[in-house]
Amino acid sequence: MKLKLSGTEKIDVSSKFLWNSIIDPKILKECIPGCHEMKEVSDGEYKIVLNLKVGAVGGSFDGKVKLSDQNPPIACKLNLSGGGTLGTGKGYAKIIIDEKAKGTSLMRYEGEGEVAGLVAGVGQRVLLGVAKHLVKKFFSSIKVNLSNNRSQSQ
C-alpha cells in the first residue's frame, strides 16, 4: 500500500546548522524513533537498523538511506529502501530548507512510500497515523537535540 506524507516544521537554527545536523548519522540515530544503528557506508549513503511497532505487529527493519539531489544547505532527496520481519518498504522524501529569518529555518518535506508485508496488511488502518506520529517524534527530538547542541557550542 502507498503512503503520502508532507509537512512543514519551524526550527530555531540556521539552515547550515540544520543541514549539517540532518546528515549527521550520530544525531539521526538519536532522533529517528526506534533507530538502533545508523552508519555512513559511503558518501551520502547510510545503513540503518530500526525497531518499530505498528499496530498489532512489531519487528526490525534493515534499510538503506541514500541522499541524492543535494544542494546544501537548501535541498536534498532521501531515498529509503529495506525490509525485515515487518515487511518491506521503499520510498523517498524531498526536503527543502528555507532560512526565513536569521537563526530560524523552515523545513518543508514531502514524501511517498510503498510498504508490503505485515506492516501493510496488519498495520494499514494505523499506518498513516503511526507514520505521522513518528515524523512528529523525529522533529521534536531533533529540536531538543539541536537546542542542546547549540547551547553546548555557544
Partner: peptide, 14 residues
C-alpha cells in the same frame, strides 16, 4: 488484496 498484490485483511482487525 490491494493493487500491489498485498493482502489487506490478514488479521481479525481487518
Amino acid at each position: 488484496y490491494d493493487e500491489n498484490g498485498q493482502l489487506m485483511t490478514q488479521s481479525f482487525l481487518d
